[in-house]
Design a protein around this nucleic acid. Sequence first.
DNA 1: GACATAGTTGACGTTTACGTCAACGTAATG
DNA 2: CATTACGTTGACGTAAACGTCAACTATGTC
Lengths: 134, 134
Amino acid sequence: MTKNTPSSNSGGTIYTISDLAQRFDITTRAIRFYESEGLLSPERQGQKRLYSPRDYATLKLIIRGKRLGWSLAQSRELIQLYNPAENNQQQYQKVLEKVRQSRERLQEQMNDIEIMMIELNDQESRIREAMDKQ
Amino acid sequence: MTKNTPSSNSGGTIYTISDLAQRFDITTRAIRFYESEGLLSPERQGQKRLYSPRDYATLKLIIRGKRLGWSLAQSRELIQLYNPAENNQQQYQKVLEKVRQSRERLQEQMNDIEIMMIELNDQESRIREAMDKQ
DNA sequence: GACATAGTTGACGTTTACGTCAACGTAATG
DNA sequence: CATTACGTTGACGTAAACGTCAACTATGTC
């Protein structure tokens, strides 16, 4: 009766570790490693890990970070920006500052991509010209 | 009389290894490593390496690749797209295909950045709201 | 011409991000 | 109830990308 794939109990979808591994095309080893590095902290049912939609979102962020070449340490910092910290103005300011920094890094990557795109376009033109001349 | 910093001889600027290291804020070790991995192939004057503007451009590409999380193997492939290969139509087609793939990867990264940007904007809004309520 | 200033080639060390067993626990199933 | 499937915690291995010596060479400067 109880399925292993995501089920709706206690008000939200729950994922097993192998389920997440399939969905993101990574290994369970990687997921456990992310936890050991402080990027995830799933619930436990006995010794087994149970992942919430929030954990799912966190993993999605990690995967995106990886595609952008972010280290796990950087992704961990990013994740912490989405976690409720102490609610004083000073903490808020710190978080806002880190949000700004993250956006700056993303902007820099955006610029690099644009330049690379332009260079690739130029190169394609040159190749097509060379092809036409044959 | 001969300087160590870039000079104009034989029709182009020439850089020493430490000069490039300074300009790109990397170590000479890294530059030599890139060469050993087949990403650079500078001229030699005796045993000393001399880098051309083309080498400079290649290094710039490598650095951009690094900021985008590309492996050296990927950057090497990219670099080869800018090097004159055999001039037959079949080779051209292969290169064009790789150009297309590179652009696809860049586009994927661009999408990831956009999503992350949106999420950061949302998070900033939430934080500012929480700050106002205090 | 002794010496400081680049530069060179090994060779081994290090960090990050997992992969790969091994040895074991637990739970559903025929 | 033995088996199969899935999960767990170590522990060690590994690939990529350099860092860090060591030992040596070439050069130009006082």
